[in-house]
């Protein structure tokens, strides 16, 4: 984990956040939401409910109109420059529109997320291969991204989001183009990263991935939270466990080890 873990209680903390797109589209209204470190949170709601908008605020792709957005203890309206860059390196975002570079190969697309942290190229290659293997794309390593199917592109964008072992993973509709089996692969991958300590916020309207979950589900409707369960008390035991694990640089997990 490359978070220089802040000691704030929550990984994500929104207080009365509103977002108005000019001229007058009220995308989010008074959203208050806290996400614990190590939690998996499902963000559901109809198309246009404001899920993507919320995720974009979390990575500072957009700025809220009102309210406070804190990620990993940083108030995003006050962060800029090097600090924002470091924070973003600790956030993996699987964009709804993928944002893959069409001319680059699958491997190069995934590498981008690690290169900005100056990861050694041997490590990059190793991680990329493992991720592709896990997502059933082992034979696409050198394929240009533009030659992939939508579902394949989606998996590549997910691989890129998790490749840098971020502390916070934002997945916007990560299974929209995937069949049941492949969806399972993706959710397995997310679970693995979560077990290693990553916090996940998954925006989706794919009922199959949250139907039987015991993780928190937040529903947005027209920019408001409708099933407002308050955030559970922060899981201190979890945070302690994470701190211990961060103490040892050895990565024993199959998915993240660089050996």
């Amino acid at each position: 984990m490359n978070s220089q873990s802040n000691n704030s209680r929550y990984m994500v903390d929104l207080v009365k956040v509103s977002k108005i797109y000019l001229p007058d589209i009220q995308a989010l209204t008074d959203v208050s939401l806290s996400v614990n470190r190590g939690e998996i949170l499902f963000l559901i709601g109809k198309s246009g409910a404001g899920k993507s908008t919320l995720l974009r605020l979390l990575s500072r792709m957009d700025k809220q109109t009102k309210g406070v957005v804190e990620v990993d203890g940083h108030d995003l309206s006050k962060i800029a420059g090097g600090k924002l860059q470091r924070l973003r390196r600790n956030i993996g975002f699987a964009f709804q529109d993928f944002k893959l570079l069409p001319d680059k190969t699958v491997a190069q697309n995934i590498a981008v997320a690690m290169e900005v942290s100056y990861t050694r190229s041997s490590v990059i290659r190793m991680r990329t291969k493992k991720l592709l293997h896990h997502l059933g794309l082992a034979d696409k390593y050198n394929t240009p991204a533009c030659e992939l199917s939508r579902g394949e592109q989606q998996r590549v964008s997910i691989a890129r989001a998790v490749a840098n072992n971020p502390g916070l993973i934002l997945a916007d509709e990560p299974t929209g183009n995937l069949d049941r089996e492949t969806t399972q692969l993706v959710m397995d991958l997310f679970r693995k990263y979560n077990e290693r300590g990553a916090t996940l916020v998954i925006a989706t309207h794919d009922e199959s991935i949250y139907r039987d979950t015991d993780h928190r589900i937040i529903e947005l409707r027209e920019g408001r939270i409708v099933n407002g369960h308050p955030a559970p008390e922060p899981d201190h035991a979890f945070a302690d466990r994470m701190d211990e694990e961060q103490g040892s640089p050895e990565e024993d997990d199959l998915w993240m080890s660089d050996q």
């Binding site: 860059q85 570079l101 981008v112 900005v116 840098n164």
Partner: peptide
Amino acid sequence: KDELELLRLVGAST
């Protein structure tokens, strides 16, 4: 342009 935009999103330093 797209690549630079992406680089910024993934936190590339200036």
